[in-house]
Amino acid sequence: MPGHPDSPTDAADDGERHEDALLAARAGEGDEEAFEILVRRHGPALLQLATRLLGNRTEAEDAVQDAFVSAWRKLPEFRGESAFSSWMYRIVTNRCLNVLRARRPVAALDAVPEPAAPEHQASPARVAEAHAAVEALSSAMAVLSPEQRVCWVLRELNGLSYEAVADMVGISQEAVRGRVFRARRQLTEAMVAWQ
């Protein structure tokens, strides 16, 4: 399928956007079959986003389900000012932000878990090391504030521009840059601690 799920605003194929707009118009008028096509089409990318934001597949599925149901309810008012995929990204992002905010704060940097020792001793050392670094990264992400985490994930893992992140989260580009900076600052700090 054309259009990379990572960048809904930049890379979405024109044809797919036209098709999404038509399907969204139909779904807004009560065509649940059109809506099902949209859910199938965008579910994987949104689930990936939510999993990145929440770090937990089960919670991510719940968040995406809630987001789609809320989209179904809001579709009659959806006027298509933005692409359907961007609209859904925004709904999922907001839902995940609320989930993160509702979590008990995990508190400060000294709570960063040590990177797990490489489990696969049999595999080549470099692979194990790389894998451990990725594992450590996802643990370190737990110390980010919900706002930092959301901006950092959209920017770094989903590859959105600062402008797109600002649009999605509803804050200024400078505020997004500030949050991404702070997130990077904390993550590099954590990585220095692993050495």
Binding site: E36, R40, G43, L47, Q48, E61, Q65, V69, W72, V134
Partner: peptide, 23 residues
């Protein structure tokens, strides 16, 4: 590396069913 290692989230059939049940 994290982006490259991430497993694709293609098995969304159950999610689609749950959404459509509510819809």
């Amino acid at each position: 590396r994290a982006r490259a290692e991430e497993p694709p989230q293609e098995d969304t059939g159950a999610l689609v069913d749950r959404v459509m049940d509510v819809v």
